[in-house]
């Protein structure tokens, strides 16, 4: 690093490659190209078997398209929030970046929750399992792989969120709006779960999730202590790279939602 360059914007300096694209971003693009082939294989497997066995299973009897439609919408909106996160990261606006990051994580979580609900519903009420039919095998493998992608994304974004927090708890109150953001995030999920319990149906699972989250979140705050205070402006690139991944996973879902769910209703 020469003297002058060290004073320049560190993010700009990372762009000084032959292509003008930062190394991390380039590697992420390569990974996404590869991931296309992963999903391409899974989706074709599913569609091929759908074509061979058009009538063995009637998916419209199994799917609850309203729920999946809703969670797909949420996932798309999370992409929107992700874009806002990246933009505020580049502007160096930590407060709004945290808000949008939490929103992205929350929406990703809602999608995952929807998928867990969907899977357990299909298994217990509709009798569709990995081994019940070829449809079950291909459906769960495909959507499960996508779910793992979302879960990893949530995990990754959460790491960056914790990294943006100040090193010491005592400094938390000095950060603009941080306590409010954290508390909202902490109670939002339990509130929703309790509402679902009363409105939708009285399953203790919802209450357990609510209680679990209330305990888990402070624990998370503690165990992620080594992460805190590590975020600096150069890391906007890492957030952007995570964002690329996130958008990709969402785009894949659009394809899966169309090819696996929507076409069944034509």
């Amino acid at each position: 690093m020469s003297d002058l360059a060290a004073h320049a914007d560190p993010l700009e300096e990372l762009k000084q490659t032959n292509t003008g694209v930062e190394n991390k971003k380039m590697a992420m693009w390569a990974f996404l190209a590869s991931d296309c082939m992963f999903f391409g294989t899974l989706i074709s497997t599913h569609l091929i078997y759908r074509k061979i066995y058009p009538t063995v299973v009637d998916p419209t009897q199994i799917f609850s398209i309203e729920l999946t439609g809703f969670s797909s919408f949420i996932l798309l909106m999370s992409s929107f929030l992700m874009a806002l996160t990246v933009s505020s990261a580049h502007k160096g606006n930590l407060t709004s970046m945290r808000t949008f990051l939490l929103g992205t994580i929350l929406f990703g979580g809602v999608f995952l929750g929807g998928q867990v609900y969907e899977f357990s519903h299909f298994v217990h009420e509709k009798g569709l399992t990995l081994s019940s039919s070829v449809f079950g095998s291909t459906f769960y493998t495909l959507t499960g792989t996508h779910g793992i992608h979302v879960a990893l994304g949530v995990f990754w974004l959460a790491m960056w969120f914790f990294a943006t927090l100040p090193k010491k708890f005592s400094q938390f109150t000095r950060e603009e709006r941080l306590p409010a953001q954290l508390i909202t995030f902490w109670v939002a999920l339990p509130v929703v779960m309790v509402l679902v319990y009363f409105i939708h149906h009285h399953s203790t699972a919802y209450l357990l999730i609510a209680a679990g989250w209330l305990v888990l979140f402070p624990v998370l705050m503690l165990v992620t202590t080594p992460l805190r205070g590590r975020y600096s402006h150069v890391n906007a690139l890492d957030v952007e790279t995570a964002g690329l991944y996130w958008h990709f996973v969402d785009i894949v879902w659009i394809i899966i939602f169309t090819a696996v769910y929507l076409v069944e209703y034509l």
Binding site: M37, F38, T41
Partner: peptide, 16 residues
């Protein structure tokens, strides 16, 4: 990077 994903998925399917 383009050829390994199909075999990876095929192996996962076989493993399942």
């Amino acid at each position: 990077i383009l050829a390994f994903p199909p075999i990876t998925i095929a192996l996962v399917e076989l493993m399942f």
